[in-house]
Each structure stands twice: as C-alpha cells, then as structure tokens.
C-alpha cells in the first residue's frame, strides 16, 4: 500500500512539473498543460469515433503480436531441435532485429494495404524478440532432466508440461512483456506513416497537421494507457498459466 502511495506521489510530482513548465512557457502549441489534456480526454472518451479508433488499432496491433508470438515460438522450437534451422533463421532474425520500424513500414506499404499495415509491422517486431528469448529458454533445458523422465517413465504430456513448458515459460513471459510494449510503439508509428482510416495513428497525424497539441498528447496518453492495459491483462493470463504449470 505504502509503495502505491509513493508511486502515485511520484506521478503527481511530474504532473505538477509538467503543469508549471507548460504555464511558464505559455505556448499551447509547443507544450499543453496536463489539465488541458485531461479536458481533451473527457471530450474524446464519450465519442463513438474514439472507441472505433481504439478498437481498430488495438485489434490489429494485438493480432500482429499474437502472430509474432506464435511464429517466434514455432521457429525457436524448430531451431532448438534442428541445428541447420538455427543457422538458416539466424540471418533473418538478425535483419528483423536491426531494420528500423520506418523502413519496415514504408516497405510494408508497398506489400499490404495501409489498413493492415500495423499487423505486419508489429508481427515483424515481435518475431525476433520471441524467437531469441524462447531459443535461450530451450537451450537452457537440462538434458539430464530428459534422462530423469525416461528413467521414471514419465508420460509425454506430463513430461511436456513439467519439464519443457515449466522451463521455457519464464523466457516466454519476459519476451511477451517486452514485445507487447514494443508492438504498441511500432504499431502506432506505422499507423502515423501509413495513415489508415479510423486508426489511432491517423488521429495522431491529424493532430500534427492541425497543430492540435492537446489532441496529440491526449491520444498519446490513450496509447500508453491501452498498451499498459493490454500488457497487464496478458501478463496476468501468463502468470495464471505459470502458476498452473508450477503446481501441475
């Protein structure tokens, strides 16, 4: 409880600094006050358009994230099992890891419609993070546990959950936690470049064009909030799974 109070006070401290800074600058185009952002949010939240934009972007970003989790895990399992697969995927993963989001996005705009741009971009951001973490988890499996399982004649499903899943889940958890935040960042950035109709990225772009700094800040707050909410919800689900596996 005390920790939460301290955290809240820290947030309040920075909000006060922001408010004082914005008031001292007195240029709402450059820096809007947090109070004005809050007022803008109260105007946005009741509108249907706001929720449509949030659902549009969240749906696509989370779809890309889910596809990335699935693909990254699948490729890591293949690489863990077959050495040549590891060598085969290595250059691809290195490229995915290093290419800037803007390059992906512009290239992706040639391949897919701007509507589904964020699915592809978040997918490409998610895959290397999940792949590398899961592969590390798979590599850390102790081969002596496999021997133990065969000595005790542990059935395949129990072996999978108790030995393999319990060992790689912590790696999956850290990969997913890192990837989901980055997916929101890159997804929103991709939408600002691709400007798909009805997305959060389009709203950010319009705010920039019309110099609506309050809108820009309000939509940024929305992205932070929804991103954190998705992260918390997903991590809670993973935690439930981890607890279930730990107790078998």
């Amino acid at each position: 409880m005390k920790k939460h109070v301290i955290s809240l006070l820290c947030v309040l401290f920075w909000l006060v600094i922001w408010q004082i800074g914005a008031m001292a600058l007195d240029q709402s185009i450059l820096l809007v006050t947090p109070v004005k952002v809050a007022v803008k949010l109260t105007e946005l939240i009741p509108s249907t358009d706001f929720w449509k934009s949030v659902l549009f972007s969240a749906g696509r970003i989370l779809a890309g994230f889910a596809l990335g989790l699935f693909t990254g895990t699948g490729l890591a399992v293949l690489s863990g099992k077959y050495g040549f697969m590891r060598r085969l995927f290595s250059p691809l993963i290195s490229v995915l890891k290093s290419v800037p989001v803007a390059s992906f996005t512009i290239l992706a705009l040639i391949w897919v419609s701007s509507k589904n741009l964020s699915v592809l971009v978040t997918f490409l951001i998610c895959v290397p993070i999940v792949y590398l973490n899961m592969l590390e988890g798979i590599d850390s499996l102790d081969p002596k546990l496999k021997e133990m399982a065969s000595i005790f004649g542990i059935p395949p499903w129990r072996r999978f959950v108790g030995i393999y899943l319990s060992q790689v889940l912590p790696y999956f958890r850290s990969a997913a936690g890192l990837a989901i935040g980055l997916c929101w960042k890159s997804g929103a950035a991709a939408e600002v470049i691709g400007i798909p109709d009805g997305s959060i990225g389009e709203k950010l772009y319009q705010a920039k064009i019309y110099l609506e700094t309050a809108d820009l800040f309000a939509w940024t707050v929305v992205i932070i909030f929804v991103s954190r909410l998705c992260e918390k919800a997903f991590m809670f689900a993973v935690k439930l799974l981890v607890n279930r596996v730990e107790r078998m």
């Binding site: 102790d142 002596k144 546990l145 021997e147 133990m148 108790g162 030995i163 319990s166 060992q167 889940l169 912590p170 596996v245 730990e246 107790r247 078998m248």
Partner: peptide
C-alpha cells in the same frame, strides 16, 4: 545430481 525441475513446486 538432484535432477529436479526448479520452476515446479
């Protein structure tokens, strides 16, 4: 060695 699964209870 113990050969226990560290992440399990």
């Amino acid at each position: 060695e113990n050969r226990l699964c560290d992440n399990l209870t």
